[in-house]
């Protein structure tokens, strides 16, 4: 089956949308001075291969899209996606090194959004991101499994710390605790450790049965809908349980 053509109208629309004062000024004044190069660990890790220097990565992605006004072939957009997802972690370190304080990370995020809209986000990332919609977390863990894990962890640590509880969906607490779904899936002991600390500190806390994954793969993939959904789940949980604050596990 031939691959679908790129929806250039849509990309043009996004390019216009992003062209606010910041993007416009940044792209207009970047002096190609090279101060950013050494700040990037991709650049230094690849023996100073110039194709990893931040300004070049922006020129090859967002710069290219603006130059061609969105008229790119699927092959070209694939190349752009490869840079946007694979050669930058959006760590923002280069922003501190740029004399103009340009933020390549934001521009990479914008490019990821456009690539994602054309189905060019890394498949594994996209699949995990979609789990946010279906399961409310990136690891496709059902609510039953999650609650079971909590009970299991409570029992497991009974001896270590008597009286420790992992209260799920308790209303009227001070604190809502949310974490990274990887913890539940790969490191369940993490929940128990946090619970022990909360118990020792006398924290009045609860763990929501839905909206407990604080990660947001929609943001990383560049999928605005999933991004908003994942964030909303957490805030909904906080509202539903009437907590005063949210603690994240990081």
């Amino acid at each position: 089956m031939p691959e679908p053509a790129i929806d250039t109208d849509f990309i043009r629309e996004r390019l216009a949308f992003f062209k606010g004062a910041r993007f416009k000024t940044w792209l207009d004044i970047c002096a190609h001075c090279g101060y950013c190069a050494d700040s990037c660990f991709f650049y230094t890790a690849h023996d100073k291969d110039p194709k990893y220097m931040p300004a070049y990565k922006i020129m090859q992605t967002l710069g290219k899209l603006y130059k061609k006004n969105g008229n790119v072939t699927r092959e070209e957009l694939k190349g752009i996606a490869d840079i946007a997802y694979g050669d930058c972690t959006a760590c923002r370190r280069c922003s501190l090194y740029c004399p103009f304080g340009i933020e390549p990370a934001l521009m990479i995020a914008a490019v990821r959004g456009m690539c994602c809209s054309q189905g060019l986000a890394p498949p594994a990332l996209m699949e995990a991101a979609k789990n946010h919609l279906e399961f409310g977390n990136q690891m496709a863990i059902t609510t039953e499994d999650m609650v079971e894990t909590c009970v299991w962890m409570e029992e497991e640590n009974e001896e270590e710390m008597p009286g420790m509880k992992i209260p799920v969906d308790k209303e009227g607490c001070d604190t809502l605790y949310v974490l990274n779904a990887r913890e539940v899936k790969y490191y369940p002991q993490d929940i128990a450790e946090a619970a022990m600390i909360f118990h020792a500190a006398g924290e009045n806390w609860t763990f929501p049965s839905m909206g407990w994954d604080m990660t947001n793969l929609g943001m990383f993939a560049g999928h605005a809908k999933i991004m908003a959904h994942a964030a909303k789940l957490c805030y909904d949980a906080a509202e539903r349980l009437g907590v005063k604050r949210i603690f994240t596990s990081e």
Partner: peptide, 10 residues
């Protein structure tokens, strides 16, 4: 080197 969704990219 694992940020920005790099880990979940698989």
């Amino acid at each position: 080197g694992g940020g920005g969704g790099y880990i979940p990219m698989g």
